[in-house]
Structure formats: structure tokens, C-alpha cells
Design a protein around this nucleic acid. Structure first.
Length: 565
RNA sequence: GUGCCUGUAGCUCAGCUGGAUAGAGCAACGGACUUCUAAUCCGUAGGUCAGGCGUUCGAAUCGCCUCAGGCACGCCA
């Protein structure tokens, strides 16, 4: 897939490269001149041209000449026949500034119209299979704000990679085994006993799950008339209560995420690694390959040569396997059993240490650690009444995803969480949440969409064909507002490309705001209805292309595109 | 104490593989609706890019140091 924007970048870079080679051949530039990678950018200032190249500055060192002189030599011998470029200027410290014919803008709009929803698709993924694992919250309680951020980000990354040509699988890792499940079962048991024997009958320890949902589970269990557990052994009681509550929690998580617009292709159970024997296989594999050692009755994973890395316990002295062990088995499963080419894990920064240890451990499993990408996002800090609210399931004071969505709505929440780079902190002021939802840029973008829909409705009512796929002549679109809008539409493939490469797709929210801004400016400067036929048709085509791109981006963001507001 | 992340306009944040006069939204101020949606547009104002030193033609961007905040350092997950 080659877009106009890629083509014109190629034309500029090609012309520069050709000109440099010829100048070297003719002795105008010294033979040893190193041609650095030719990078093209679009200058902020229009007087600096449509595209600019700083190759001359990069070559100054090896050519032992002033950048301006080199730029002059390159510029003087350029051939632009058969390209969108009209002319070149040397400016500033040695920039080569290129001025393009507006034809590239018109051709881009034509592409948008002909490709529709496929516009922006790329083949950089080459169909490779990539798994994006995100949310993966412990099923011991409801989803909270941190999960909301990770969910919005992970889902967007997955959607972008799909758009970029990867074969994407979205996966949720269900931590339904291990220590926190024990703690969950114990908490349930104690709440159960409190229900039966009164609140003071047992002590409820601080390290148990304090949330009210645990109490609800205990009460619901009793009220639903299931087996009376009061006289049974503790082990059995815990097992039954956990077996009762866990599926309910998982189902609630699933429903909550669905409401949030997230549907996973696969829910992978940690317990299944125990049941299938893969966990034991993995540990044996590590032992056979000399990556383990025994100490103090426990089995340890020997970290590589890195002195700073600490060794990790795989099997505790009491025989229980650690989370680290099952995570290794899980990743062995992802790469070896299921054959993913690439795996992306989203994690809160509080798991940073664990995550980098996991990544560094991949070679011990025979996996190139470059195939595992970690996307770390800063946790959401919740502010209420000017105070920080700690979000921990154990303290039971977390704000749930459902509560958040009740206040802000799905669209605003998903947009909001993707407006900031993953690495930046995010303070969420609950008191401002409702007010903020009115100011949220998502409405600005949706408004542009609704406005266009309204325009098309009215034009259609006047008997104008708004559904035609044909692209009329766009030669009459010469005003700044029209060209600015065309230009921003032409940039979409690059936005997808950069988002996919950097795994930082938050820029798409900013991009679609820019599209909306350019459209609103156009709307105020140019009329469609009532203009002379040819101009009206050209503007109508531009408006339709804008609608298509806005819809396209909102679709990737999984945000609704209302036709009326 | 050690490691990682963050520090840019009053607020929330872009920009960070070095490039031209550091951008946007909100808030503030001044304008624009008898016209396809004013949830909009146009304009004004707003900066020691936390601070310091260095690297070079050029630093918000790269390196070192300091300061401030967050997170992690368990036979927890």
C-alpha cells in the first residue's frame, strides 16, 4: 500500500539522493561524503515550504563544507519531472525546502474517497501474528481505574496493529491460581462465617480483601440456598466459596469490559498451566538447561550474567509455585505452543521490575527477548476532595470501572485515557469528572461528525446526490482552509504507521482533534450548499472525505460516531 | 539507599532517533449567528522547557550532577 504522502516523501528523498550522487560524481562534493539517512519533514511554517530536508546539515561534517554551500550544490542540480514537487529553496542554516503542487492534496482526497474504511491500512505487519495482552486484572474483585487506562490503551494498540497489517489476538490472562486466590478464598470464608455466626465471631485480618463485594458474595451464597458450609472443613469451605465467587467475578469483568467496548479474543487461565502440566514442563526445561539452583529448600531461577538482576524463586520451600514461574510458563506457551511472532504486554509501572525480569528471562526459554514488548503505563491517581485516594483492592476503596463509566460515559473515558502518553502520570479528579466530560474534546470531534451528517442530510433533501462514489474535479479547492483540511486528511496513514511502530497510539486522539479543528475552520470559511455547482461538488467531496476519516479514526478508537448531537 | 519513570504557559498535556520564531486544549480577555448544527469560528495575552555544567554550527531533545514527585526493590501477585 503506497499512499500519496509516502510517494511524495519518496520523491523528495529520491531527488535529494540522486542530486548528491551526481554532485559527488562531478566532483562538486568530496568523494568521501557520507550520505546520512535522508529524513523529510513537514515544516511548521508555510514559508519553509511543504516539505523540508536537512541532509546538507547532516553531511557537513564528512564533506568538510558549510551546510549552506552543500545545500546550494544539491539544490542546483535537481530534476522534478514526474513528481509533485515544483521547486526547491535553500534556507536558514542549510535546509532544503520543497514546494509541492497542490495535486498531491487532491490525489490524497481521491484516495480517501475511493478507499473508504480501508484508508489508513498498512502492510507493515506483513500478516505476522501478534498477541496483545492487557487488563489481566486479578479476578478477586471489580475492575478499577488503573484497569480502565490499561484497557483503553491496550485495546487501541491492538486495533492500530490490526490496521497496520498484523494478525492480532487480544488476550486476557486470568490469574485464577496462586496465592491471591488463596487469600480470596480465605476472605470469602471469613465473611461467610461472619454471616453465619455474627460479625464478631472471627477476626478479619488486614491483609484480606476488605471490599464490600466479598461480603456480598458470602451473603449471596447463603441466600441462593447452596450447600451449608458451616460444619464443613475449612479447606472444603474455601474451595466451594471460591468456586462460587470466581466465575461471578470473571463474568462481571467480562460484562464491564464489554460495556467499555473491549472484547477479548481469548481468556487464558493461569490454572490451565497447572492442569496441563505446562508449568511443570517449563520448570523441568529450565532445570535441564542449567537455569536453576536449589537454596534453602526452594528452587531458584538463576538470572543471567547480569549482576544487578536478582535471582527469583520458582518453587517455594512449601512446594507452591510462584507467580514468576507460571508467568514463564505462560510466555513459553505464547511463543512456543501457540507460535506468536510477537507478544506485547501492557502493565502498570508498579509491575515494572517483574516485567523487565520476565523479559530478561526469555532467552532461558529459548526465546529472543526482542519478540516481547512491554508497554508500561503510569497508574491513575485518583483525587477526591483534593486528596489522593489509594486504589487497592485490599483496602476496598477503589473506584470501579462501572462507576467511572456512569459518570463520564464510555466515549469520554476511552478518549480521555488515550489523550496522554502512557508514560505520563494521570490525575483523575473525581469531583471534576462530570464537568470534565462536558469539556472533553471527544464531544468536539463527535460534533464535527454530527455536523457533517447534518449537512449531508440537508443537501440530500434538496435533491443533491450525496452518496456518489465518484470523485469530481477538486481543482477549485484553493482556499487555505480547504487545503489545510486536505493536508491533514492526507496524513492519516503516517499517524497509523507511527502509532504502530512506537506503540504510542495516543497521538491518534490528537490527530482526530486536528481533523475536527480543520473541518470546523473550513465550515466557517466555506459554504457548500448554495455554491455554484462545480465548487459545491468539490467541497461536498472534501466534506465526505472528512467524514470518512473521522469515522475511521473513531472506529480505531472504538468510540461512537453519532449522526446527531 | 539502589533502579526505572516524570518535571514544558495559571491548569491538563504535545513536541524528545538534535534543527528554523517551543505548540494545542481548558481557563482569561476582545470579536463573529436573519445563512449547511455557536457543543463552532476568528483574534489577543500568557514561557528561566525544574536548576546547573558539558557535547557542537545548533539542545526542550543527547551526557553528567542537583532538586522535586511517582513506582519498584518479598520463598506476594
Amino acid at each position: 500500500m503506497t499512499y500519496i504522502i509516502d510517494k511524495i516523501y519518496g520523491q523528495v528523498a529520491g531527488a535529494v539522493k540522486e542530486s548528491i550522487e551526481r554532485a559527488v560524481g562531478e566532483g562538486l562534493l568530496p568523494p568521501g561524503t557520507v550520505i546520512s539517512e535522508i529524513s523529510i519533514e513537514m515544516p511548521k511554517e508555510r514559508i519553509h515550504g511543504d516539505f523540508s530536508c536537512n541532509a546538507a546539515m547532516g553531511m557537513a561534517g564528512s564533506a568538510r563544507m558549510a551546510p549552506v554551500r552543500i545545500a546550494g550544490i544539491i539544490a542546483s542540480g535537481m530534476d522534478f519531472t514526474g513528481t509533485y514537487i515544483k521547486r526547491v529553496e535553500v534556507a536558514g542554516p542549510g535546509f532544503l525546502n520543497f514546494f509541492a503542487d497542490d495535486g498531491w492534496l487532491r490525489d490524497s482526497v481521491a484516495d480517501v474517497l475511493s478507499m473508504g474504511g480501508d484508508y489508513g491500512k498498512l502492510d507493515i505487519g506483513k500478516g505476522r501474528r501478534v498477541m496483545v495482552e492487557y487488563v489481566s486484572a486479578n479476578p478477586t474483585g471489580p475492575l478499577h481505574m488503573g484497569n480502565a487506562r490499561g484497557g483503553a490503551l491496550g485495546d487501541l494498540i491492538a486495533n492500530v496493529l490490526k490496521k497496520a497489517g498484523y494478525d492480532v489476538t487480544k488476550e486476557y490472562y486470568v490469574n485464577d491460581a496462586g496465592n491471591q486466590i488463596e487469600k480470596f478464598a480465605q476472605s470469602l470464608e471469613l465473611r461467610y462465617l461472619q454471616q453465619i455466626n455474627g460479625p464478631d465471631s472471627v477476626v478479619f485480618p488486614e491483609d484480606c480483601y476488605q471490599g464490600g463485594d466479598i461480603i456480598d458474595h458470602a451473603r449471596n451464597y447463603i441466600e441462593s440456598g447452596l450447600e451449608d458450609l458451616s460444619g464443613k472443613p475449612s479447606d472444603y469451605r474455601r474451595k466451594m466459596l471460591a468456586a462460587y465467587a470466581l466465575p461471578i467475578n470473571i463474568e462481571n469483568i467480562r460484562k464491564g469490559l464489554k460495556r467499555y467496548g473491549i472484547e477479548f479474543d481469548n481468556w487464558f487461565s493461569e490454572q490451565s498451566l497447572y492442569d496441563s502440566g505446562e508449568l511443570d514442563e517449563t520448570i523441568e526445561f529450565l532445570m535441564e538447561n542449567g537455569h536453576t539452583m536449589e537454596k534453602d529448600g526452594a528452587l531458584w531461577f538463576k538470572s543471567g550474567s547480569m549482576e544487578s538482576e536478582k535471582d527469583e524463586v520458582l518453587v517455594k520451600s512449601d512446594g507452591f509455585k510462584t507467580y514468576f514461574a507460571s508467568d514463564l510458563a505462560y510466555h513459553r506457551n505464547k511463543f512456543k505452543k501457540r507460535g506468536f511472532d510477537r507478544v506485547i504486554n501492557l502493565l502498570g509501572t508498579d509491575h515494572h521490575a517483574h516485567a523487565s525480569r520476565l523479559k530478561n528471562s526469555m532467552p532461558a526459554l529459548g526465546i529472543d527477548s526482542d519478540r516481547l514488548d512491554l508497554v508500561l503505563f503510569q497508574l491513575v491517581r485518583l483525587m477526591r476532595g483534593g486528596e489522593t485516594v489509594r486504589m487497592s483492592k485490599r483496602t476496598g476503596r477503589a473506584v470501579s470501572l462501572d462507576e467511572l463509566l456512569d459518570e463520564t460515559g464510555v466515549d469520554a473515558a476511552r478518549f480521555f485515557f488515550n489523550m496522554k502518553a502512557s508514560g505520563s502520570h494521570l490525575d483523575f479528579d473525581l469531583d471534576l469528572a462530570v464537568k470534565q466530560s462536558n469539556e472533553n474534546p471527544v464531544f468536539y470531534v463527535q460534533y464535527a461528525h454530527a455536523r457533517i451528517c447534518s449537512m449531508l442530510r440537508i443537501l440530500g433533501r434538496e435533491g443533491i446526490d450525496t452518496g456518489s462514489d465518484a470523485c469530481p474535479s477538486l481543482d477549485l479547492l484553493t482556499k487555505d482552509e480547504e487545503k489545510d483540511l486536505m493536508r491533514i486528511l492526507a496524513l492519516y496513514p503516517q499517524e497509523i504507521s507511527i502509532s504502530a511502530r512506537t506503540l504510542e497510539p495516543g497521538r491518534l486522539t490528537r490527530y482526530v482533534i486536528d481533523v475536527a479543528t480543520a473541518f470546523h475552520s473550513f465550515y466557517n470559511a466555506c459554504r457548500v450548499k448554495g455554491e455554484e455547482k462545480e465548487l459545491m461538488e468539490a467541497r461536498l467531496a472534501l466534506v465526505k472525505a472528512t467524514l470518512s476519516v473521522i469515522r475511521n479514526v473513531l472506529d480505531v478508537l472504538s468510540i461512537s460516531a453519532p449522526e446527531k448531537m
